[in-house]
Amino acid sequence: MKKLLISLAVLLVTAVSAQAGPEEDRMAFIKYYKGKFPNVPMEEYANGAYAIDPVGRENWEAIEEFPPYEPFIDRGQVMWEKPFANGKGYKDCFPDGPAIAHNYPRWDREQGLVMTLPLALNQCRKANSEKPLKYKKGPINDILSYIAFQSRGKVVNVEVPKDDPRAMAAYEDGKKFYFTRRGQLNFSCATCHVQNTGLKVRTEILSPSVGHITHWPVYRSKVDWGTVGTLHRRFTGCNKNIRAKPMKAQGPEYRNLEYFLSYLSNGLELNGPGARK
């Protein structure tokens, strides 16, 4: 009997630790990074690799003096204010806007999925008989830049509602994606952004995952970017780098990954659009 009780207790403990909730996950990540970078204050994580890369930071600060994403913000404002063919506009879909980036990603109970800002924007367009925007490149980055700029200073506060098990399942799915090694090079997100954070691939310092989602969309000066791109475009690029077939932008896999990844940044201030190498 005693043995049975012990084994039951062991089972329960393992079940609990395997099913660590979002808050336990976030705390574990923060504890890990604090151990690696004891002198980096929490709010600095919103600056990504520049929180831990003093040389890169100098360049970055110089770039931010004349932000390359400014024209995107301006074009985005025009988009936001211009009515659709039916006379309605984004303002009608998002009455609280344009400073709404901190409300995403969120669990959408009615549709039973993780709602991201780009998906919400396209659902608005669809409801008003407008063609959807592409999710990686192009004009979606204009309106996202404008919304991000207007949302600066808002605090990330992703929730995984406990009363809808589908929300937790989506979070868990994103977490699973994060820790799964994929592609011919056999890396997971965690291989680079947890296990080897702060170390360098060639000259690039690997950034911590806490802070990954605060600054999108991002202007990258990299040759094959040279423009502002979305978070899911970045996911695609990461997956290609490790020689995995990328998932569909705004498909369930990447949205669930965004859900998990965004939860890790809870408490940080939004500071998009961003500029990166």
């Binding site: 395997a18 336990e24 574990a28 990540f29 890990y32 868990e172 977490k175 799964t180 947890v194 296990q195």
Partner: peptide
């Protein structure tokens, strides 16, 4: 990898 496993370097932080 069908079962999610938190790698040891992070597991130690829980």
């Amino acid at each position: 990898q069908s079962k999610l496993e938190i790698p040891s370097y992070l597991k130690a932080m829980y």
